[in-house]
Amino acid sequence: MTTLSRKDSHRMTLGLAVVVAAWGAAVIAGARTGFFAGLYMPMIAVIVAATIAIPTLIYFSSPRLKAYADGIGHGPILLFHTWRIPAALAFFWYGLQGELPTAFWALAGTGDLIAGSYAAYLMLQPERSRNHLSFHLFGFADFVVAVGTGLTFTLLQDPRMAPIATLPMALIPLWGVGISGVTHLVAFDMLRRGVGRSPAMSRSTVLSA
């Protein structure tokens, strides 16, 4: 079993922070310069899929990344997912102005508001009573619905999807969605291996290997 020293863990934290920040900066630059707006709309869906698939494959092929995830636990993942609350507000704001397809903003906004609020609620609970599995099951289901609905309208080239290529909305699908999807999958793997599982959760409730 791979283990990391405190120094290695700190280095990995810094490295991941740099990658995430650079990723966000690239999205901001691409949106500001009109790069994303100039793409054939379905290409945005391809980019989103790649931002989930590539980091996930890297994680599952790296014992060091698995050891790092085990070391930091589920808390930072829950904290990150609270970003879905402001994302939900952005969906509502654009949607109520008629700038996004109704089915997309209503489903994505409502789901993100619930998921983000649930993550915040669990953060306030004692570690032993946190039901990480229930959060990630709901969060991932919301993720699938939101991404699937957005992908549908993107492939249909609905002009109301244009805001996803501009700021601030571009940060949601092209930055937040990728990280959210990856962290859900990482958390499922951690729970499958028994990392951070609440004592109240029996082995039968965790995803089988």
Rank of each mutant, 00 (worst) to 15 (best):
G196Q: 14
A17M: 06
G178E: 13
A146I: 01
A120P: 05
L4V: 04
A87C: 09
T82L: 05
V182F: 14
G196W: 09
G181H: 05
A26K: 01
T102D: 13
S134N: 09
V20N: 00
T2I: 08
G73K: 12
K66H: 03
M169C: 13
L167P: 14
A22D: 02
L151S: 15
P159T: 02
L122N: 03
A69P: 10
A87K: 01
P55T: 10
A31D: 08
D189A: 13
T205E: 12
V177S: 15
A21L: 09
G34K: 01
T205R: 11
G150A: 13
L39P: 10
L100S: 05
G38E: 07
Y94W: 07
P199E: 09
A119V: 04
Y118M: 15
R11G: 15
L156H: 05
L133F: 04
A88R: 05
V46Y: 12
S61I: 01
A90K: 01
T154L: 15
V48W: 11
T152P: 00
G111W: 08
A170H: 07
A106F: 00
S134P: 07
A31F: 04
L185W: 11
T154D: 15
G73V: 03
Y68V: 00
A120N: 07
V27K: 06
F35M: 00
Y118W: 15
P63H: 08
R192G: 13
L185H: 11
A146Q: 05
F92W: 10
A49L: 14
D142A: 06
P76L: 05
A108F: 00
A29M: 03
H74N: 08
F80C: 05
L89H: 12
G24H: 13
A31M: 14
L155Y: 10
H132L: 03
P163G: 01
F143N: 11
L124E: 04
G24E: 13
N131T: 07
A17P: 01
D112Q: 14
R193K: 12
A45N: 09
M169F: 13
L155N: 08
A69F: 11
P63R: 06
R32W: 12
L113A: 13
A200I: 09
L107Y: 03
F36D: 12
A103G: 01
L171R: 10
G24S: 11
D142T: 02
Y118C: 08
H10F: 07
R197F: 03
F80N: 01
M169W: 11
W83E: 06
R160I: 05
G139Y: 08
A115Q: 09
W105Q: 02
D112L: 11
L174H: 15
R160H: 06
T205S: 11
T13L: 15
I44Y: 06
L100N: 10
D142P: 01
L65N: 12
L171D: 08
L57W: 06
Q125K: 14
L65R: 07
A21D: 02
L78A: 12
V147Y: 12
Y118V: 09
G30A: 10
K7P: 00
L96M: 11
L4M: 11
R32F: 07
E99T: 06
A31K: 09
F135M: 14
I58M: 12
V147D: 07
P168V: 03
M12I: 15
A25S: 14
A187K: 06
L133H: 03
